[in-house]
């Protein structure tokens, strides 16, 4: 099969790789780059576990052809922390006990980041709307919603 050359920014670093035609971004990230933070849940856009940011916007990497991110910027959970310092959202998830098995957590964090980047002071309803494409089977969502709201208010306290 013909391989396509692909270059994009992955969490702030330039990466170059060859991908098979039709390969989705989730597979390219996990198998070619080795970034295992986006998770495979359903492969059909039903669960949100594979969520990443492309040029700052929330996308499902399982439904995104890898070739379409050529020249663009892709952010995953792996790029969220700043060196040893956790992102405020990660700290809030920890403090609010917003993860149990943790499989949905990377997608939840990216969905929450996409929200806070465009709306630093969301209402509870806006947080619920923002994570509605992400399935969690353990937490009952309440601790996740609380964590996003807590991260938002800690961001306001700093600013």
């Amino acid at each position: 099969m013909t391989k396509t050359a692909l270059q994009f920014r992955h969490n702030g670093r330039d990466v170059a790789l060859f991908v098979d035609g039709g390969v989705n971004l989730l597979v390219a990230l996990r198998e070619s780059i080795g970034d295992m933070t986006p998770k495979f849940g359903c492969g059909q856009g039903g669960c949100g576990a594979c969520s990443v940011l492309i040029d700052g916007e929330l996308h499902l990497s399982c439904l995104t052809l890898a070739e379409t991110v050529n020249g663009r910027s892709v952010e995953t959970l792996d790029g969220l922390k700043d060196g040893p310092n956790l992102h405020p959202l990660q700290r809030a998830f920890m403090e609010q006990f917003a993860a149990q098995c943790g499989y949905c957590t990377p997608g939840m964090l990216m969905a929450a980041k996409a929200l806070l980047d465009r709306n630093p002071s969301p209402t509870r309803a806006e947080v619920i709307e923002a994570i509605s494409g992400n399935i969690c089977r353990c937490t009952g969502y309440e601790p996740i919603v609380n964590a996003v709201l807590a991260a938002a208010s800690s961001g306001r306290a700093r600013a």
Partner: peptide, 17 residues
């Protein structure tokens, strides 16, 4: 058969507890 068809409550279906 899958997450799209298997119904579960989302974050908008929960309530204070």
């Amino acid at each position: 058969r899958d997450f799209v068809e298997y119904l579960m409550p989302g974050p908008g279906d929960i309530c204070p507890h």
